[in-house]
């Protein structure tokens, strides 16, 4: 259950960051309802933000492994 709490915390954090970034980028002037172009912008922001999360995650993991390898070889 520790694992599930973690997965949930992680999803919650991702959700909150995506909402923050999408709102900042897509809703410059809040109108009477979300219009089509705002929704499309939100969807694209979500997709790109998740792409970015994956790129960063792989990149950071690779770095940690390089650093560990370098430490062992000394």
């Amino acid at each position: 259950e520790v694992r599930m709490q973690l997965a949930q915390a992680n999803a919650q954090e991702l959700l909150s960051k995506m909402t923050e970034k999408a709102f900042a980028k897509c809703i410059t002037k809040p109108g009477a309802a979300l219009d089509g172009s705002e929704k499309s912008c939100i969807a694209k922001t979500m997709d790109r933000y998740m792409d970015a999360w994956n790129v960063v995650s792989r990149s950071y993991m690779a770095r940690l492994q390089r650093d560990q390898h370098a430490a062992h070889s000394h």
Binding site: L6, A9, N10, E13, L14, K17, K21, Y49, A52, W53, V56, S57, Y60, M61
Partner: peptide, 15 residues
């Protein structure tokens, strides 16, 4: 958990 927390912080900043 610490790894993921760092990934969130980096993604936020690098985005």
């Amino acid at each position: 958990a610490r790894f993921q927390q760092q990934v969130h912080a980096f993604t936020d900043m690098c985005w």
